[in-house]
């Protein structure tokens, strides 16, 4: 998913990081401009278009009848899928989701699922036979870095935008959302931690850690990526960054 960066630019970004600077003139813990537009897609139950700098991700919610998993007869279902569309980057190709798309979908899934953002207990129509399946489809439109945070934010924004279903089996007054998980990614370049890596920074970073937090600042999901490593102190610092920025991003959800 990360693109090749020329060695000149690579050295430049790494040198800047050492001085506490970034290629787009941000500070190390400055997130790019974030906008959340809810409900752009009328054919979806709920939707959101999130922009993080030039990165654009749209999330759409669809709700359908489904047979529950045999071991979870009294739970609605959550299915997250991510598409890295060929229109979003010269390096994305059509075809089945590759490991980057799969990881993206699963990281977003864990943030929503593990925080119990959706009250799945309420999405049962008939125990063991008929439940509501909530599909979150992540559509990456423009890839300028940090798809994880943009996608996770789009997902929760779309869920908060979801309307009750017009179906006689739907009895809830509103869509049952009870938590607002927000994911923040911190990348490591030249032993410096930077928040919200842009595309070039992703091409240079040694590793990244994505941390999903909920309202009280506790953690509901984490994922490290990249072949580099984190020291314990770096993890703790990344968590503080994610917690502080998480509150800022959550405020954008309205």
């Amino acid at each position: 998913m990360y693109e090749i960066v020329s060695s000149v630019r690579r050295d430049y970004i790494a040198d800047l990081a050492r001085e506490g600077k970034r290629i787009d003139a941000r500070t190390l813990n400055q997130f790019r401009e974030v906008s959340v537009e809810v409900g752009p897609i009328k054919s979806a139950q709920g939707s959101a278009l999130v922009k993080v700098g030039k990165t654009q991700v749209i999330a759409g919610i669809k709700v359908e009848h489904a047979e529950p998993f045999p071991d979870k007869p009294d739970n609605g279902m959550l299915i997250v899928n991510a598409e890295l569309l060929p229109l979003a980057s010269p390096t994305f190709e059509p075809g089945r989701p590759n490991e980057n798309a799969i990881e993206l979908a699963r990281v977003v899934d864990r943030g929503i699922r593990e925080s119990n953002a959706i009250d799945l207990d309420k999405l049962v129509i008939k125990s063991g036979e008929d439940v509501w399946a909530v599909f979150i489809d992540i559509y990456v439109l423009d890839h300028d870095g940090n798809l994880i945070d943009a996608s996770a934010l789009a997902a929760i924004a779309a869920l908060l935008n979801a309307k009750p279903l017009e179906d006689e089996a739907w009895t809830l007054p509103e869509f049952p959302i009870q938590k607002r998980p927000v994911t923040v990614t911190v990348a490591k370049i030249n032993n410096k931690l930077i928040i919200d890596p842009c595309l070039d920074e992703e091409g240079v970073m040694d590793a990244r850690i994505s941390i999903a937090t909920i309202e009280d600042g506790s953690i509901c999901a984490m994922q490290k990526g990249g072949i580099g490593y984190f020291l314990r102190e770096e993890l703790e610092q990344a968590y503080e960054m994610a917690r502080a920025e998480g509150a800022e991003l959550r405020a954008k959800l309205g």
């Binding site: 593990e114 506790s218 509901c220």
Partner: peptide, 15 residues
């Protein structure tokens, strides 16, 4: 060197 090369987490942790 205590370098963390894999970390995943799901559930709930306070600091």
């Amino acid at each position: 060197k205590k370098l963390i090369t894999l970390l995943q987490m799901d559930g709930h942790f306070t600091k």
